[in-house]
Simulated scan of single mutants.
Amino acid sequence: MKILVLGATGYIGSATVNRLLAEGHEVVAFTRSGEAANLPSVAGDLTDPASLRAAITGDIDAVINIAPPTGDEDADHAATDAIVESLAGSGRAYVYTSGIWVLGETGDDALDEDAPTNAIAIVGYRPRVEQRVLDAASRDVRTAVIRPGIVHGNGGGIPGMMIGWAKEQGVARHVGENTRWPMVHVDDLAALFTLAVTGAKAGSLYHGVGEESVLVADLAAATGAPTEVWTQEEAAAVVGEAFAEALGLNQVVSGAKARAELGWSPLGPGAVESMRS
């Protein structure tokens, strides 16, 4: 397949591109500059629907959107509409990246894809974008939405930030005594994107979760630094209120559906092991 990847040069995007190439697909990167190392690329911006339409040429078999949202709901809806309009009636695939923060607090039972959304502020409008993407299945677009857990591995993601904070401050801080995060290794997530773009049925929603719940205190301890519990208010003074709420979000989320329907088999190291290494 020839696949246009939005966000191809980012943390998750780079891993996904590597996986796609390893499996014999052709990748075109959609970047602001129109340049990406060792990849064919086209210039464009998520806030410019015309550039999206121009990039989705007739030889593009699928689009994967791993780019960060713009933060502007109208702009993200316009981007979705431009992609869908370009693919409509073709049966080609569109995979959109959301995240498990749209579920809000979960309690102790693992939530699956049938659970209602209760998005926290930092992702407040994203469930509406998800639904817009899923509804495009009625226009003969093979749409799928993936909600990754907290991504780890290769020194990146929020766990990578925790390691950086511990090095800088000499203490590993985490929000809440018993906060749990659903997590996924970046290479396993890349495998899920590849499975979804090639085999997901139209209108599919998947949680990209390798471990249903990991105690954040254990992640902090894995940095090797002394640990310290932050209140959400203390964290907000450093990272902002919206991100502090996300860091303190206690969740248990199931990734069983992707395993059952797509044959996804996460193989990467667990989050605590990944942090230690």
Rank of each mutant, 00 (worst) to 15 (best):
G157E: 02
D74A: 15
A172Q: 00
A29P: 06
P148V: 12
I146A: 03
V42G: 02
A55G: 04
R32S: 11
A62D: 08
V141I: 12
M162E: 06
Q169C: 06
A54G: 12
D81Q: 13
V27N: 01
A246E: 04
D188A: 11
M1K: 05
T9C: 05
V123F: 11
Y206V: 01
A137E: 10
E228Y: 14
I163L: 14
G263E: 06
G199S: 15
T106Y: 09
A54I: 12
V84M: 07
Y125M: 04
G91H: 07
S204N: 02
E73Q: 14
P226T: 13
E233F: 09
A225S: 14
V239M: 14
D108W: 12
A242F: 00
T227V: 13
V141Y: 03
S51C: 08
I3E: 07
L267C: 11
L111Q: 11
H77I: 13
E234A: 15
Y206E: 00
L195V: 05
A190W: 08
R53H: 13
D74Y: 11
G89L: 05
P127R: 09
L215N: 05
R276N: 00
A200P: 05
L111P: 01
I163Y: 10
E228P: 04
A110I: 12
G263D: 03
W165S: 15
T16K: 08
G263V: 05
V28K: 03
A62Y: 06
P159I: 04
L205P: 06
R259S: 14
G91V: 10
G255S: 01
L215Y: 04
G270A: 08
A200D: 06
G208A: 03
G24T: 12
